[in-house]
Structures are given as C-alpha cells and as structure tokens.
Design a protein around this nucleic acid. Structure first.
Length: 815
RNA sequence: GGGGAAGUGGCGGAAUUGGCAGACGCGCAAGACUUAGGAUUUUGUGCCGUAAGGCGUACGGGUUCAAGUCCCGUCUUCCCCA
C-alpha cells in the first residue's frame, strides 16, 4: 500500500482530463442538457477562499448532474473591466489592460488547481474587443428600440479632484472623496440610462423560477411597487406641478406641500425674501446621501419658499416648503403633506407649527384632535372632514378619491416604482466605450454596427484631472457623424460593468463566434441556464439587470423564453477566523494556494463543502480541515489496504448489513445533492466510511458486497474529491474515468430495514427502546410496548390513560 | 422604523419537517504504537450529580400525548431597505 500524497495525483489527473477533453461540453441532442453557471469572478489577481466556496460546491453539483445522465455545460470566464484596475493604474502607473491580463493569467492557474470540470474552450473575458464589440452592439440595440436614452442626472462629484465618483469611491458618514478627503457634492450631468422601469411589472413575476424566497423578496422590495394617484396642483402664481401619493384618500387633509430641494419649480416660485434661505438649504441638501435624507428618525429640516399652492379638491391655499426628505428621484419629486396620517409629515408639521388636520377617524379610539395628537395615525377608519368622501371607509375612499380627481381632470390613478432606470454612464476609462456619436447637426446617433467595436485606446494619461481619460485623448473622440458624415464627437464615457455581466452567460455559449453575440444553434440547445449559483449580494443589482436584459432582448427577438436563469442558489460567506469579513487590512485572509499545497485540492474541496451549511457560510476554522484530510487518508487506506485479518470470514449477515448501509447512504447522498446540502453529503460519506471500516474488520474484504460498496463509494466521492476518486478508481482496476460513470441506483430492497427500533416514552420521557420487525403493525407495536417490563414498572398495575403510536416512529404512553 | 435570515455542547454544525436533541467533524481527555509526536489508532466527551436521577435547543408564555421545529411576546446578531 502506498501513502496518499495529493500532490502526486492531482496534477497528473488534471493534465490527463485536460488532454482527453473530458469536460468539454458539446451539443448532443440525444441527452438532456444542463447549463450550470457560477457568477463570473473579477480578476483581482488572487483567488480568495470565497471564490472556492462559490465554485467548488457548484462544480460538485454539476458533476453530480453529469453522472445522472445530463450533458452538462460548466463555463468560466472573467468580468475584466472595472474600477480597481483603473485605480491601481492611477496609483501605480500600471496599465489596466496589462494588470488585468496578468491577473487573469495568474487566476487561471489557481482555478485549474481546483480540479473543476470547466470547459476552458468557452472562456470569455469581458475586456477583450471580441467580447465588448457585442456589449456595444447590445447598447445600440437597446438604443434603437427606445430602451436607452440620455438625460441630466445628479452624480457624486468631488470639487477638489474635479471628477465624478462612483458610489464605492465615496466614503464615510460625511461622504468624502476617497482620494483627497473633500466632501462630495451632487452635480447634474448628462448621462445614458436604460429603461429598466419599462419592465418593472414583469420583473415582479417569478413564475416558474426556482429561486430562493429571500431573493424574490429582496427584488420585490427593491422594485417597490406602490399604487396611488398622481394629482396636479397649481401654485398661486399659476404654475402646475404633479405629486404622487399612495394615499389619495387623504387629499382633504393636506396642509402643506413639499418639493425636493432639486425640484425645477423651486427656483421659479421662491419669493425674493426666501431666496437666500432656500439657496443655502439646497446647497446643504446636495451634500447628503438619499439614505441619510430619508431616515425616518432624523430631525426634520426644511425651508418655506414663500409660495402657496391651491388644493384642487377644496381650493385651499397651502404653503410650499422644500425639505430634504423628499427625493427628486422618487415619484415626481414633490409630495402633498398630510401630517395627521403620515409620520414624517407629522414630524415636519409639528416642528414648523403647521396645522394637522384629521381626515381619518379609526373606529376604536376617541375622536382625534389634530392640535393635540401626539403622533400621526396611519390606520384605516372612517373618513371625516373630507367633502364628498366623508363617512366612507378609508379603503373605499382610496378608490373614490382616484375617481374624484380623474373625473375632474386634475389627477389619475398611478402605479409608482422605487426601481429607477439603470444609469449606464461611467466617467471612467476601463470599461466598454459607449458606442454613440454626437453631431451638432444630427444629435446623438449610434456607431454603425459595421464600425464596432469602438476600440478602447491604450495610449491614455492617468492623471486624475477630472475628466475621463478618453475625453483628454488628443484624437480618439474625433469621429464622423453616421448620418451626415460631417465632423462629430464620440461619447467619452464608458459603460457600467454590470452591462458586461448581464449577458456573459450568452457569450460562454460561443466565445469565438463573430456573426453575432452568440451562435443561435448553441443558444437553442443550452439556454436557459438551469442552475445559477452565486452570492446573494447580487440580488438587487446583477440579478435584476440580467433579467431586464434578457426580457428586453426577448422583445427584440434576440433571446427566447421568459427568464434567463431557472434555478438560483446562493452560497453564504466565508468569514475570517476572527468572525470578521476577510480583508487584507484585517489580516485575516485565508490563502487557498497554501492550503492546496499543504493538504491537496480534494481536502480543501471537501472541507469547504463540509464545514458549514452552504447557503449560510461560517467563519473559517483552520484546524477543521484536518478532519477532511484524515477522512481522505482513511478512504485511501480503506480501499488500497488489504484486510488486517485475512482469515476472518464475513457472515452473511455482515455482508447483508453492509449492503444495506451502502444503499441507505446512497439514498441520502443523492437526496442531499439534489438539495444542495453539501455538508451532509460529506458527513454521510464519513459515516459510511466508518461503517465500511468495521465491516472490513469483520472480514467482508474481497466479497461481492465489499466490491460493490467500494464501487458506489468512489462514484459518490467523485463529485466531491475528483482526483482521489479517479486515482482509487484506477487503482482498483476500474475503467477510466470515474467521472463518466453513471450515478449508482439505490436498490430499495437492499436498503430496507428488517428490524426497526421504536423509542417508547412514558409521559413524553424516553424510557425504553423497542426492537420490532419492520413489518410489525401499529397494534403489534402498541402491544409490545405495553407488555415490556419497563413500561409495566411505570404502569404499576394501572391501565394507561392514553397510548399514542406514531406511524412506527415512536410510542408515547400517558399515565 | 419596515422587510428578511439566524440564535442548538468548548467550536463548526446534524435532526428524512411535530416524534430518540447533539449525526459528522474540530477540540479536549485517557489508553495503544513509537526514540519522538503537530503521524496513526482505540475509547470517552451536552450540563449537574459518586449514583439513581434531574436539567437541557437565546428568554418568557401558549397549543399538543409529544415542540429545536407550530403560535404569541421579549432580547441579541447579521443582511437588505427606508
């Protein structure tokens, strides 16, 4: 017997699998297909243990599916554009392209050491022109179908560096610039958007999707559908403006209006006396984040504009304020304030001494008095002081009020979503250039498809001058107008990298294809993605974008079907040993390369599956991996070492019991694979190994039952620890490769127990264990329990008050 | 403030969903082998108790013959949103 030395077998098998093309996935109409996809990594340069935690169980599941007869596609690639590479370029002067492709090269090596069944022929890298040509083509398609548009929008801007910042470059509660520490401000810039809101309603439908409930809830909340009405108010000076309200029933309770400080009406209605105060407030509000501004528990602030609006339902004159708790980006950027029935409006009204007018009276409390009530009452009840609605219930009034404003022409029912259109523009270099050209005469037009890709120039300057490096390039932006042929300028912004990742699952299908983003034949066979795995942190960004993308493309006839990903599963996070999030600054990062070197990829794989519930994650425990190392060594020893006592001859009973346990465990492991319960797969294999060890001591080595046990064991092991499984498969004289073997079938007859142990409780406390034949009836069990010596002792001659026999699982005797 | 997830031995976690709490592993303890042990192996290991026995799934109630699991309330942690 030889020792188990992972380094000797892992590289050998990886090379052979690669040379044999064992994991190449090709269209095969004779087999059911399974497209398994794991969220693609960003090439940060070093593979993190978190990557392994995402990839390995996904790989094991894909291998399981393959052994179950599916033609499995498991691709890999890199989300290669993005900020970190560009920031490093600014700091260290290394070109993002150079750095990114060096990182990819390094990560490829790390990824290969994992022994996953990736089909590397399908590798796609989003930063290559062959890839981003099609990212740009999709942009053009969206533009041509009216789903991409340009508008003025506020962005975070550092006045010292004179540049716009991405959200993750704005730090701290005071929202300062990460580079110079200057507090950022909001600045209005013209930028490109995708109309995600056009699909808001459809995105709320998860029919036919096997997605975790929590992800659906996150998306539903993020999309934030609310029903209400849009009502047009008029200022005293005759300007009209719209407000969105979810409570049109409270229109008669409006005592003031609030505009967002950024609302265009503000400058037009503010009176000269109020101008200075309003300007100061606008400047201060621009410095705060939306989240801070809307915080319910925050002290309410605001300024009176000096202007008044007319309430269209009763002609009342009501003051117009500006306040930062009203956001320009939600609804219409203006609200009607009903302090009696809205918490924030109430806080504002009390602070500014504005009237609180009750229009809903809940049934079970004394009549409310607006002047003295301590808090707003959002509850339902009967309408009061509400003109024609008075006396109806608030529920009825909701619809009646919509009817009322609709009939009179100053409002209509409306559905509002919190979901906003997707801002695509980034004032950054390291991304796919937005393929648009601006001409003084013809305006914006897309770069003709035949001119794609719009190549990212390599010769750019890295100084943070405040403009996109593309804008400062001496010649790059010069172009010809696609319409008139005259001189024109390119868009110098690049695309959000979420754009690249919204369609990478399509590029994997045919990364070399140059007639379109993907080969339709490959699409028709492989799509949709059957199993998608990744972190839950992408629930509200990537997973909404990619669904939007698929639906928009479907409506253009490019993709098919309602959804791109049928089944979704999320892994949790591996924390550092200190129970904190792993990060270089905390010094708690676990380096997978060292672990692989020391313990072997199979042990690392096994431990990652074993040490926590996959969807939960857990803190890393470096000594825990010893357990899986020992287990694999014992597997090795059990299979390669002949019996210690060759003269021992196993009884028929021993052989039968071994077979039973093997098939019982096979049933359990099969079930757990289907349910993504990887930790119990490994613990089940450990358990079975312990039992096989005992059986071998009892002399089963070399019997047909033993050989079957080894056979089934290695097949079950193959998805978890593919190298050792392959090696032992070969060493026991089996035919290459274990990974092309079918998953074993459970022999239900062999797995059946012939005796079962029934716990017997007296008054709910365990007092006895009854062993009965498996086919014993409940009456038999009851009789056996009652007649047992121990139960007799507790009964002490008296009849039991009640006897419960629970489906051959347990007996409870109540005395 | 709203929504979601979670709370089980010294630790990570099991518990076929209302039916034997603590599988499996780490750690720990004792023994074997060994010049040695950070190798291997055997046994033990929820807590209290010498024992019989009792107590135990964050806390307090409830439903039930039976609750980690269901219901009500409280606390704590994490995530998302405001």
């Amino acid at each position: 017997m030889s020792d188990y030395i992972p380094s000797q077998i892992e590289a050998k098998w990886q090379a052979k699998w690669e040379a044999d093309g064992l994991y190449q996935a090709n269209i095969d109409p004779s087999k059911p297909k399974h497209y398994a996809l794991t969220m693609l990594p960003y090439p940060s340069g070093d593979l993190h243990i978190g990557h392994w935690y995402a990839f390995i169980p996904s790989d094991a599941h894909a291998r399981f599916m393959r052994m179950n007869g599916y033609n499995v596609l498991l691709p890999i690639g890199f989300d290669a554009f993005g900020l970190p590479a560009e920031n490093a370029a600014i700091k260290e002067g290394i070109h993002p392209m150079k750095r990114t492709f060096e990182n990819i090269e390094r990560m490829r090596g790390q990824l290969r050491s994992m022994g996953a069944m990736w089909d590397w022929r399908r590798e796609a890298i989003s930063a290559t022109p062959e890839y981003y040509k099609w990212t740009q083509w999709f942009f053009s398609q969206l533009y041509k179908h009216g789903l991409a548009y340009r508008k003025l929008s506020p962005v975070d801007f550092c006045p010292h560096c004179n540049t716009t910042l991405a959200r993750e470059q704005v730090w701290g509660d005071d929202r300062h610039c990460e580079r110079c520490g200057t507090p950022v401000i909001k600045k209005n810039l013209s930028q490109w958007f995708f109309k995600t809101t056009a699909y808001a309603e459809e995105l709320l439908n998860y029919e036919g999707m096997d997605w975790p409930e929590r992800v659906k809830v996150l998306q539903t909340n993020w999309i934030g559908r609310s029903e209400g009405a849009i009502v047009t108010f008029t200022t005293q000076s005759g300007e009209t403006f719209e407000i969105f309200t979810t409570r049109p029933d409270t229109l008669w309770g409006v005592t003031f209006m609030v505009l967002s400080p950024e609302h265009p009406l503000v400058s037009r209605v503010t009176t000269p006396e109020q101008q200075a105060e309003v300007n100061a407030y606008q400047a201060q509000a621009a410095r705060q984040s939306d989240i801070d501004r809307e915080a319910a528990d925050k002290e309410k602030t605001g300024v009176f504009t000096g202007a008044y609006a007319i309430n269209p339902v009763n002609g009342e004159k009501i003051p117009i304020y500006i306040a930062d708790y009203v956001l320009m980006t939600y609804g219409t950027g203006a609200i009607m304030a009903v302090p009696a029935h809205d918490e924030r409006d109430f806080a504002f009204a009390r602070k500014f001494g504005i009237e609180v007018r009750v229009v809903i009276q809940p049934a079970d409390i004394p009549p409310l008095d607006g002047a003295t009530m301590p808090a707003s009452i959002p509850a339902s009840g009967t309408m009061v002081n509400s003109g024609p609605l008075t006396g109806t219930s608030a529920d009825q009034a909701f619809h009646a009020a919509i009817q009322y404003v609709t009939d009179r022409g100053f409002g209509k029912g409306s559905i509002n979503y919190k979901l906003r259109d997707w801002l695509i523009s980034r004032q950054r270099y390291w991304g796919a250039p937005i393929p648009m050209i601006y001409c003084e005469k013809d305006g914006w037009n897309p770069v003709p498809d035949t001119d794609l890709p719009v190549l990212l120039p390599e010769d750019v300057a890295w100084k943070p001058t405040g403009e996109s490096p593309l804008k400062l390039h001496p010649t790059w932006k010069n172009a010809r107008c696609p319409v008139c042929g005259g001189p024109a300028e390119r868009e110098t912004d690049t695309m959000d990298t979420f754009m690249c990742s919204s369609w990478y699952h399509l590029r994997y299908l045919s990364p070399q294809y140059d007639q379109g983003p993907f080969d339709p034949a490959q699409y028709d066979y492989w799509m949709p993605v059957d199993t998608y795995t990744g972190g839950i942190e992408h629930a509200n960004m990537h997973l909404i974008y990619t669904r939007f993308f698929h639906k928009a493309l479907r409506d253009m006839g490019i993709t098919k079907g309602p959804e791109p990903m049928i089944q979704l599963r999320n892994q949790g996070m591996v924390l550092g040993e200190d129970n904190e999030k792993m990060s270089k600054s905390r010094g708690n990062v676990v380096a997978p390369d060292q672990l692989v070197e020391r313990y072997g990829a199979d042990a690392v794989r096994s431990f990652l599956m074993f040490f926590a519930r996959w969807e939960m994650g857990a803190p890393w425990n470096s000594s825990g991996i010893d357990g899986t190392v020992r287990w694999l060594r014992r597997v090795w020893a059990l299979v390669t070492d002949p019996a210690h006592n060759p003269n021992q001859v196993a009884s028929d009973e021993t052989r039968r019991l071994l077979r039973r346990r093997v098939h019982q465990m096979l049933r359990r492991v099969t079930r757990d694979f289907k349910q993504f319960e990887f930790n119990t797969i490994v613990s089940g294999l450990m358990e079975l190994l312990n039992e096989m060890g005992k059986a071998r001591e009892a002399g089963v080595y070399g019997t047909p039952e033993w050989n079957e046990a080894v056979d089934i064991y290695l097949r079950m092991l193959a998805p978890v620890a593919p190298h050792i499984a392959e090696q032992l498969w070969e060493q026991t004289g089996r035919k290459y490769s274990v990974h092309t073997q079918p998953w074993p079938q459970v022999d239900e007859e062999a797995a059946r127990e012939d005796e079962i142990t029934i716990p017997v409780q007296v008054n709910g406390k365990l007092r006895h264990r009854l062993v009965v034949p498996a086919d014993a009836s409940e009456a038999d069990i009851r009789a056996a329990a009652l007649s047992s010596e121990i139960v007799q002792k507790y009964l002490d001659g008296k009849p039991p008050r009640k006897v419960i026999v629970a489906q051959k699982k347990l007996v409870n005797i109540v005395i």
